[in-house]
Structure formats: C-alpha cells, structure tokens
Simulated assay, not measured.
Amino acid sequence: MKTPWFKVRDARAPSMATLAMTVIGIGLAADASAADLSGNATLTTDYVWRGSTQTQGDPAVQAGFKVSGASGLYASAWGSNVKFAPETHASSELDFTIGWGKRVNEDWAMDINVLRYQYPSTAIDLNWTELNGTLTYRDNYWASVGHSNEALGYDAAGTYVQAGAKFPVNEAFRIEASVAHYFLDDEVVATEGYSHAQLSGVWAFKGPFELRLTVHATDSDATAIFGDDVAGSRVEAALQASF
C-alpha cells in the first residue's frame, strides 16, 4: 500500500506543491472556454500501484474524468476503493491532479503535474502530494519522474523514476512494458527504496473498451517494506471503458 501500515504522521501545513495546484487551477479556469471533457471507468481484479496491491488482492472499481484546455492546462479527478490495515479505516482513494501537457513537436510530448492523494474518512492522516513529469517520444516511449517531500505519507523525501514502452502488434492489440525504482529516504524505510517491473497485453475492442492483462513483479526490498502479501509477484486483469 502507499502508506506503510505501522506509520502515523502529523498533519502538515499546505506544501509548495499544493500552492502550485492553486496557481495552475486559476490558469485552467481562464482557459475553460475551450475545455474538453474525457473520462474512464475500470473494473480490475486487483488495484496495483507501483508494484504493490492497494486492495489486498481484492477487486476494485475505479472511475475518473479530465478537463483539458486548449493551452495544455488540465485538471482531473480519479477514485478507487482500497483496503489498507484495519486501524486506518481506509476504504477509498481520491486523486486530484492539475497540470500541463502538450505535444512540443512532431515526436515529443511533455506533461508536468501536481497530484494529491486523498483518503477520506480515515482514522489517521494518509494524505500526501507529489510533483510529476513525463516525457514521451512518438507516443510509444516514455520516461517519468515523481518527487515528494512527504513520500508515502511520511515527512521525508521520495523520488520515483520509470521508463516504459508500447509495442503495437496490430490496430487492436499492443504490448506495454515498464521498469521503475522508488528512491526513499531512510526515514521512510530501512532500505534505499525498491524496484519493480510490469508487462501488459492490451486488447482494444468495440470502440472505447480495453481489456488488459498485467504481470507485476517487485524486488526483495519491496517485500521487506510491505510484506509478501502486498508486494512480490501478482497478475492483474482489468476492463476499461474510455469516453
């Protein structure tokens, strides 16, 4: 899970990332006249985030929407059920994102955003904020980095780096693969972080629907942090509809 079960942290004042969300939000409001609305809904056998399950291996129902302006500014909201340790009383996650993303030339696209992880009605404060950036080449190759001074809900820094690629087989089927490492301060965990990888087969059928089968794997540092029942190897199947 995103926040280790044994850690309780104090509430904190608004971060610079939160202030950045406000500034970008003002810009998006000014761009609203040319805004586009999109969204998605997903049924998955397991909600896996950065290699670890967020639902103890149980299914999840997820949905989100995104408002995008002509300038590239956008705002999105996304939600899922979660299942953390009983003492957290966490049952849902809401993610709020404000950012800018646009193609910079024929080959390259860029996205920079601020993401807020929110867990309503929890017994302890699990909420935190992350700054993310992604560079995409020809729509099929990407590298991303995320940084937070309150990583995984701690008062400590963490930096997440990922590289991935899509390999189209035909118009309906593609393969996706990625590798990542999460660098974490020793105030968060005893190790310097952990690595994980995933491999997906994606079948797009009947318009907006996609069926995805993903194999996830983490290293031994992840299982040392989260436990064998949360990290390690697992298979996830998901059906998604986009609009």
Rank of each mutant, 00 (worst) to 15 (best):
P86A: 12
E187N: 13
Y119A: 12
V202I: 09
A163L: 11
R212A: 01
G133Q: 10
A75N: 01
T18A: 15
I225N: 12
Y154D: 15
E176F: 02
A204D: 13
E150V: 04
V104G: 12
G64M: 11
D36G: 08
V48A: 09
S15R: 05
Y182C: 09
T129P: 09
K166T: 11
T191P: 00
A30G: 07
N105H: 03
R12C: 08
T136L: 05
A217N: 06
W78R: 13
D95S: 11
P208E: 13
I98N: 14
F84M: 07
S144G: 15
P120G: 13
P208K: 03
A11P: 09
M1T: 02
G193V: 00
A32D: 02
A165G: 14
G79H: 08
M21D: 15
A151R: 00
R50W: 02
A90W: 03
D58L: 03
V8L: 14
T3P: 02
T44P: 03
H196R: 09
T159C: 07
K2H: 14
I24Q: 10
L199H: 02
G201S: 11
A177P: 11
T45S: 13
A11S: 10
R212G: 00
W5N: 14
A30S: 07
L28D: 13
V8P: 11
T18S: 15
F96G: 15
R50V: 01
V82G: 05
V202F: 01
S91L: 02
S76E: 15
A17R: 03
N132C: 09
K66C: 03
G69V: 05
N105F: 06
E192M: 04
G99H: 00
L184W: 07
T214E: 02
G153H: 02
G101W: 08
W142N: 07
S71Y: 01
R9C: 14
A222N: 08
A60M: 06
S195Y: 06
G201I: 03
E130Y: 01
V82I: 05
T18M: 13
S33T: 04
Q56G: 15
A75M: 01
A11N: 11
N40M: 10
D10H: 04
A180M: 09
S233Y: 03
A63Y: 10
I112C: 12
S91H: 00
T53E: 12
A204R: 05
Y117K: 14
V61R: 04
M110S: 13
S200Q: 13
S92M: 11
A13S: 11
A85R: 09
V230E: 15
D31Q: 08
T223R: 07
L184C: 13
T134V: 10
Y182T: 05
A163Y: 01
S38V: 00
I124C: 10
R12W: 04
V215L: 06
E130T: 05
R9P: 11
D228L: 06
E150D: 14
A224V: 00
